[in-house]
């Protein structure tokens, strides 16, 4: 069998085993507990049954996730540029970034609702808060990790500070930026969902997947709850896939992480 076929075949087997395991657990449970662990067929059925509500919720969550994600990219990049200026700047500002990261959403959400109101705005801000930290930390690290020899070379060439920044430090930081972006991409849909759960609003059909989760759990619609989880998961996959695609397009030609020779 060729390597390529093997790369399709083995993951397919693993997938089949996963589904089998799922059924196994369902039927292993005593009958009165099986509702807690619905079968894949039941989940797919719930997905079909609730497709309108779930589609609308997915769109709303995607919107919040995307806006928060972009906001985080733009602001983290500008922050990283400032943070890369000196270790003094970093020492002065990192504690406040830590505060942003360490304050739980559960606490922030009610404050946000007071400030900007429940709904998409709060969802965007919460997504931003969750995505910002890994982005800013990684990008800053990249900007300050430029090869000393290359920096000296630019000094030899009498490059201006701006030239050094945009022709040397920023491209050198791209692999770090994409590492942060990959982490942030997994967090963005979760952030939007949590935001929706804690500070969302269903006014004008504005509710997202988090809101849908609240509804299904209060109505004890467990297969639908699982279906919501599946949709969230898929959304996360799409986000990550897009980021991996972007980083492939940007880095594949020159960065070692895309070296095709198998090691």
């Amino acid at each position: 069998m060729t390597r390529r076929a093997l790369h399709v075949f083995v993951p397919a087997i693993a997938g089949a085993l996963f589904v089998a395991l799922w059924y196994g657990i369902h039927f292993w449970l005593s009958e009165d507990l099986r509702f807690l662990f619905p079968t894949p067929t039941a989940i797919v059925a719930a997905l079909a049954e609730n497709r309108d509500a779930l589609a609308r919720a997915t769109l709303n969550t995607t919107e919040g996730a995307l806006l928060g994600f972009f906001l985080a990219i733009v602001l983290s990049f500008s922050s990283a540029l400032i943070l890369s200026l000196s270790s003094l700047v970093r020492a002065s500002l990192y504690p406040y970034l830590m505060i942003l990261q360490l304050t739980p959403v559960i606490v922030v959400a009610p404050i946000l609702v007071l400030w900007v109101g429940a709904g998409i705005k709060s969802v965007v801000v919460i997504t931003f808060l969750i995505c910002f930290f890994p982005l800013v930390v990684n990008t800053t690290q990249g900007l300050i990790s430029t090869d000393r020899n290359l920096v000296e070379l630019f000094q030899m060439w009498r490059a201006s500070r701006l030239q050094q920044l945009f022709l040397l430090r920023v491209p050198a930081a791209l692999p770090y930026f994409f590492t942060g972006l990959r982490i942030a991409a997994t967090l963005a849909p979760i952030g939007a969902l949590v935001g929706d759960y804690t500070a969302g609003s269903s006014a004008g059909n504005g509710g997202g997947l988090g809101f849908q989760a609240i509804i299904y759990s209060s109505e004890a619609k467990y297969p639908a709850l699982f279906a919501t989880a599946v949709v969230t998961c898929l959304l996360g996959f799409v986000f990550v896939a897009i980021v991996i695609g972007l980083s492939w397009l940007t880095l594949r030609r020159w960065h070692d992480s895309f070296d095709r020779t198998d090691k």
Partner: peptide, 12 residues
């Protein structure tokens, strides 16, 4: 100036 390492910009 030529350094001990080639110091090429890997993205170019």
């Amino acid at each position: 100036f030529v350094f001990q390492e080639a110091t090429l910009l890997p993205w170019l």
